[in-house]
Computed example of a mutant assay.
Amino acid sequence: MFVVLLKPSGQPGRAGDLLAGHKAWLEKGLADGVFALWGSLKPEGGGAIMAHGLDRAALEKRVAADPFVSGGVVRAEIVEIAPARAESRLEFLLD
């Protein structure tokens, strides 16, 4: 399981132009069963994504395809978590 932190980078002015592509990229991750949730980082801005069901190399490739990442709006930091126990609704993350 991974948490992807998308932190503001040097090109924030490009966000508006790339927003539709970024949203489509997020929705594709959800439809593919890779992204379990996402949301905004508070208060500094940026976002976070919980991803599962793929290895780090595949996730890095997917993240590189995010228009916000490739367009320099955000930089991505991937944190890997080895879950040991979960509440019953989250047991699907214990792969």
Rank of each mutant, 00 (worst) to 15 (best):
residue 1 M to D: 02
residue 2 F to N: 00
residue 3 V to F: 14
residue 5 L to W: 08
residue 8 P to D: 00
residue 9 S to Y: 07
residue 10 G to D: 07
residue 11 Q to I: 00
residue 11 Q to P: 05
residue 14 R to Q: 04
residue 14 R to K: 11
residue 16 G to Y: 07
residue 17 D to K: 01
residue 18 L to W: 03
residue 19 L to N: 03
residue 23 K to R: 15
residue 24 A to C: 08
residue 24 A to D: 01
residue 25 W to N: 02
residue 25 W to Y: 09
residue 25 W to T: 00
residue 26 L to Y: 06
residue 28 K to G: 07
residue 28 K to L: 13
residue 28 K to A: 15
residue 29 G to K: 00
residue 31 A to K: 15
residue 31 A to C: 10
residue 32 D to P: 12
residue 35 F to H: 10
residue 37 L to F: 13
residue 40 S to E: 14
residue 41 L to M: 11
residue 41 L to Y: 12
residue 42 K to P: 05
residue 42 K to N: 12
residue 44 E to Q: 15
residue 45 G to A: 12
residue 45 G to H: 05
residue 46 G to A: 05
residue 47 G to N: 14
residue 47 G to P: 14
residue 48 A to N: 08
residue 48 A to R: 08
residue 49 I to A: 13
residue 54 L to P: 13
residue 55 D to N: 15
residue 56 R to C: 11
residue 57 A to W: 05
residue 57 A to L: 06
residue 59 L to K: 11
residue 60 E to D: 15
residue 61 K to R: 15
residue 62 R to D: 05
residue 63 V to G: 04
residue 66 D to L: 06
residue 68 F to C: 03
residue 71 G to H: 11
residue 71 G to P: 13
residue 72 G to A: 11
residue 72 G to T: 03
residue 73 V to Y: 00
residue 73 V to R: 03
residue 75 R to V: 02
residue 75 R to D: 04
residue 76 A to M: 04
residue 77 E to A: 03
residue 79 V to W: 09
residue 80 E to R: 09
residue 80 E to T: 00
residue 80 E to F: 03
residue 82 A to Q: 11
residue 83 P to V: 02
residue 84 A to C: 13
residue 84 A to H: 12
residue 84 A to M: 13
residue 85 R to F: 15
residue 88 S to N: 10
residue 90 L to N: 06
residue 90 L to M: 09
residue 92 F to S: 07
residue 94 L to D: 08
